[in-house]
Design a protein around this nucleic acid. Structure first.
Lengths: 234, 234
DNA sequence: ACCTGAACACCGTTCAAGT
DNA sequence: ACCTGAACACCGTTCAAGT
């Protein structure tokens, strides 16, 4: 019968920066970003929290590294960040690259909130941004309009938008929203009208009926087509 | 000479929910959101942290209340959240209301980040959203397209966009970005080209040359005009 | 060279005790 | 009814001590 004083079956795997970062990503994937604390990452690796400081300067560096891992996944899934030569296909290329980024964000739901707190761009992030600007440039955009385009896309460039009021408990939030809407119906005539129309068209719908993916694509296409129009009239 | 045991000159102002929330907003305005802790808000009011719990349930309720104060400022600056009758002016009305919201966000730089962490919509927030949907509706939009429009606007609806990589120290960030750009120039051909063109047109420019306000308005107008086009072709 | 234990200066929150 | 002191269960990080 094994006891706690038994020597480990296999020699301990040495701690490295990469193992620290992967442990942090695993923890965040399974338990959310609050599960990433120095103590918990250490625990995950069978080590005290203080040992991590031999491999990363501080927690910020762990968060930076986690984003770099996500960007690496986007790069791999995109087949690299090279700019395709076919400038005529710029819109499809932008769309594909951004939707690939979005898939990584959906795999790592903590990534958008961590990204927002980064104060410096990582190398892979810069490579990604350069590739998007390159696609626009080869598609006939001036640097100036390309620059505006990147700002107009904002976080959509990385495959997500600020989801305001993303509830933790969707069911409970739905109930609360329904109650508030009932109470404020007279003060919210347009929202009430919209919800009634949706309920009429689809009696099974709930208040949180939006399809995030198609809303994302709607907004993305709106911007890409608007940019094309400006390019052609300027 | 006053001592610590002297009675206060004036009778102590009673603590109220409203005083707690205003103290929190003042602290955040002057010291950033990290300055808002239960202990520091208590200190600001000459009271122990634990006393706050007699007036708010927890810190989340303080953050909710801070947002409600900002929304109240937007409502006041907008002259109320009524929907103007002139449907033809929908685009100007949307633009004005959103830019008014933006002014409040610029006065309270902590507000966007706090907003992102809210999980439920406040009454004033709902009133604001209803008024935007109303402007679209009176401007001839279907509920369905109006709903897409709100998603396409995202956080721009409230006057801000996700500013990815907003540095704390702009000067230092500019230096770091310049160094990284120099090192990675060959891997970042398009960004390098863009920066060189800007430097050529305006030798005094720095890397952080963007005009946030005009970039915001560019993106906003792009979306509003795209929506108008869809409305007219659908 | 790497890991650890104790400690420091913070958090939000609970609870029993004061007035 | 309102306020407080002590405590709990957490944080990130520093430092001296171990091996």
């Amino acid at each position: 019968m094994a006891t706690q004083t038994d020597a480990p079956a296999q020699p301990r795997i040495p701690l490295t920066r990469d193992r620290v970062l992967r442990a942090a990503v695993d923890l965040a994937d399974s338990g959310g970003i609050d599960a990433v604390s120095m103590r918990k990452v250490g625990q995950q690796l069978g080590v005290e929290a203080m040992s991590l400081y031999n491999h990363v300067a501080n927690k910020e560096e762990i968060l930076d590294g986690m984003i770099e891992i996500v960007m690496g996944e986007i790069e791999a899934a995109s087949g690299g960040f090279d700019v395709p030569e076919d400038g005529a296909g710029w819109k499809a290329a932008m769309r594909a690259r951004i939707l690939t980024a979005r898939e990584a964000m959906l795999r790592h739901p903590w990534a958008p909130s961590v990204l927002e707190t980064r104060t410096a761009m990582s190398p892979l992030m810069l490579r990604y941004a350069d590739s998007l600007l390159g696609i626009l440039r080869e598609g006939g955009f001036s640097y100036d309009l390309g620059h505006h385009a990147m700002h107009a896309l904002g976080s959509r460039m990385l495959g997500f938008t600020q989801e305001l009021f993303e509830p933790e408990n969707k069911e409970q939030a739905d109930e609360e929203a329904e109650a508030m809407l009932a109470k404020m119906a007279v003060q919210l005539p347009y929202i009430t009208g919209m919800v009634m129309e949706v309920a009429h068209d689809d009696p099974d719908s709930t208040l949180g009926w939006c399809d995030d993916q198609s809303e994302f694509e709607f907004g993305l296409d709106l911007i890409l087509e608007g940019l094309e129009r400006i390019r052609d009239t300027a």
